[in-house]
Design a binder for these strands. Structure first.
Length: 471
RNA sequence: GGCGGCAUAGCCAAGUGGUAAGGCACGGGUCUGCAAAACCCUUAUCCCCCGGUUCGAAUCCGGGUGCCGCCUCCA
């Protein structure tokens, strides 16, 4: 089994080979924390969390770093508008970010550096770029001398000449060339600022990532990831800064996730269709949201709409039902299956797992990996269909689901808590059924359905499950 | 203008040279007191269109059409 990763830099799938055997150093561009995150922020968080989980699953020791941009123009604007300090706003939305991605089962990064806490390294980075002639101070600002860096545009396939056409110098900027970009920006009166060799100011947007990658991961890392829209100019500029300074490749693999659309339109503030994770996870089970995101390959665009999410909810429920039926059967079943059939299923389980790995090895094809889960559900259901199952086999299917959904980051187990009142209703219904008083039994079943509890009468006894939230 | 992506059944979505995964929805059957869940069967002679390469293409090449994105803040 060989893991292949699509590398945005070379535009092809490549065999994954870490710098250091058994270890992966990855950096994922995080959010600017001036607001609650929307699903556009959630997609990379989920996609690359799955990349991380899979890498760990196949035995790598992953060092995962993801930044918080806690000072920039948008934060400064928000600060002015709300009369709240930049740092307070950042602090609040970092908290909100963690809460939101936690709901989506995104594992916490090993290191979550903040721009404001990396200021020394940022300034040092810029000083060294100036020393090497790749940057210059001008009017209190510092700019990167873009044309000096050979290979500018290699990530986004842009040529310097073409880029020049669209580039321009804003009023108040003091660039030598329109393509140059800001490394350090002089503070205007009243703005948050830091001392530097070039006066009081703040870093440009791109430099923090270069400085953080160097500080926490080194000159060359394995994977650098983010949204497709970051490829240009953000990642392009990161490459220019880091590679100009180090004369070494910044990242061996660049990964970019596709865009999000809402009802087939671009998600944007002007269209007023921005979906906040905060709201979405209250409308849908976060497991369903995470499942849904992964039914589409991470590099492809994904469309969000109520119909699609409801469809995902239905699909997800199939897996959840099977899984919880397995748990139920394990409680009530005896070992009855013959050894030959049991062995055949063991073989099947091994094959399913191998297929899952094969799909994930192919550039993290979660859509196909999920289809393996459905096939596993079908096999598990067959085992349960034959009303003589084997506890060992049931447990193996449960383990399989636990293992594979653990990689994809969602849970199939439903909460087992039931009100005493509901327990009693179920018992009363059972009693009624025994006396063939189906009228009473059915009315209790209807009443429970009203409460969101769906009953299933199986040969092994009654099972209950929660009804879908959005029907 | 430059760069890039996408187009597969009613819907969602994999597949990128060997004869169309998976899910939702639909229909038939089995099971059930009735349901629910589940299982079995059925569901694209065909992958936007037109040419070409090939023994063979949804997959490669050329030309169209449509949709979308980046080039400015953006995940």
């Amino acid at each position: 089994m060989t893991l292949k990763v699509y590398n945005s830099l070379t535009r092809q799938k490549e065999i994954f080979k870490p710098i250091e055997e058994g270890k992966v150093k990855m950096y994922v561009c995080g959010p600017t924390v001036y607001n609650y995150i929307h699903i556009g922020n959630a997609r990379p968080a989920v996609a690359f969390d799955t990349v991380r989980r899979y890498l760990e699953y196949i035995g790598y020791d992953v060092l995962y770093v993801s930044n918080f941009t806690d000072v920039d123009d948008r934060l400064i604007n928000a600060s002015k508008e709300r009369g709240e300090s930049v740092l307070d706003i950042a602090e609040r939305f970092i908290g909100a970010y963690k809460e939101d991605v936690h709901a989506l089962h995104v594992k916490e990064a090993d290191i979550h550096p903040r721009a404001t806490e990396t200021m020394d390294e940022i300034i040092l980075f810029i000083e060294r770029l100036i020393e090497k002639g790749y940057a210059y101070e001008s009017g209190g600002d510092v700019y990167f001398r873009t044309k000096r860096f050979n290979g500018y545009g290699k990530l986004s396939q842009q040529s310097i000449d073409e880029l020049k056409v669209g580039a321009r110098i804003e009023i108040g900027e003091h660039k030598e060339d329109p393509l140059d970009f800001t490394l350090w920006k002089t503070a205007k009166p009243g703005e948050i600022k830091w001392e530097s060799p070039w006066g009081e100011g703040r870093p440009g947007w791109h430099i923090e990532c270069s400085a953080m990658v160097e500080k926490y991961l080194g000159n060359t890392i394995d994977i650098h990831a983010g949204g497709q829209d970051l490829a240009f100019p953000h990642h392009e500029n990161e490459i220019a800064q880091s590679e100009a300074l180090h004369d070494e490749t910044m990242a061996n693999y660049w990964m970019h996730n596709g865009y999000i659309r809402i009802n087939n339109e671009k998600m944007s503030k002007s269209l007023g269709n921005v979906i906040l994770v905060h709201d979405l996870v209250r409308q849908y089970d976060p497991n369903v949201v995470r499942f849904f995101i992964q039914t589409v390959h991470y590099r492809h665009p994904i469309n969000f709409s109520d119909d699609l999410l409801k469809g995902a909810e239905q699909a997800f429920d199939r897996l959840r039902t099977t899984y919880n039926n397995l748990l139920h059967r394990l409680e009530v079943s005896a070992d009855l299956l013959d050894a030959e059939t049991t062995d055949a299923y063991k073989e099947t389980i091994a094959e399913l797992k191998a297929r899952f790995i094969k799909e994930m090895d192919d550039d993290f094809n979660t859509a196909n990996a999920i289809s393996v889960l459905f096939d596993a559900a079908k096999e598990a259901n067959k085992v349960m269909q034959a009303d003589n199952s084997s506890r060992d086999l049931l447990q193996r299917f449960i383990d399989l689901f636990d293992e594979l959904t653990g990689v994809l980051g969602f849970e199939l187990k439903q909460a087992v808590l039931l009100d005493e009142e509901i327990e009693q209703l179920i018992e009363r219904r059972e009693a009624a059924r025994k006396t063939r008083d189906f009228q009473t039994a059915d009315s209790i079943r209807d009443a429970l359905k009203e409460k969101g509890i769906v009953l299933e009468d199986t040969p092994q006894g009654v099972r209950w499950k929660r009804a879908l939230v959005n029907e």
